[in-house]
């Protein structure tokens, strides 16, 4: 199952993280993992609203016999991240934030991938757990 949610307002952000939480609950993830993913989505979607104005958030299930997983892709057509290394540093912010968003989101998930060029930014988040 694959859901793509447009991110245009703060309520879209709430809807995206709620959808991710529900999807993870159905898959059998615990509430700690749900909160981790919801928080990471929240960070990235806020960046989308702040820097690009709008974007999208895709949520898809990834599972096999051994593992359950969820993959979330947050994309936008904003200005892009000039220096990814710098943006991933704790405490770096261009606009008056805490500077914990991107590096924090990376620590919250198992796999974190970021690709950015002027006009397109794509961040992939993944949380995986072995089935009990």
């Amino acid at each position: 199952m694959n859901k793509k949610i447009p991110i245009k307002t703060e309520s879209d952000l709430l809807f995206a993280r709620q959808t991710a939480k529900e999807t993870m609950k159905e898959l059998g993830f615990g509430s700690a993992d749900q909160t981790r993913m919801a928080t990471a989505i929240s960070e990235l979607a806020r960046n989308v609203l702040k820097y690009a104005g709008e974007g999208s958030c895709s949520i898809c299930e990834e599972q096999d016999e051994r593992e359950m997983g969820i993959k979330v892709v947050v994309e936008d057509n904003g200005p892009g991240i000039g220096d990814i290394e710098q943006a991933m540093e704790d405490g770096f912010t261009t606009r008056n934030g805490l500077g914990a968003g991107l590096p924090g989101a990376r620590r919250l998930v198992n796999n974190f991938d970021i690709a950015s060029e002027p006009g397109y930014t794509k961040i992939t988040l993944e949380i995986k757990r072995a089935r009990k």
Partner: peptide
């Protein structure tokens, strides 16, 4: 409050 992210913390 279900989710506290950096923006809410701020």
């Amino acid at each position: 409050v279900p989710v506290v992210d950096t923006a809410v913390a701020r």
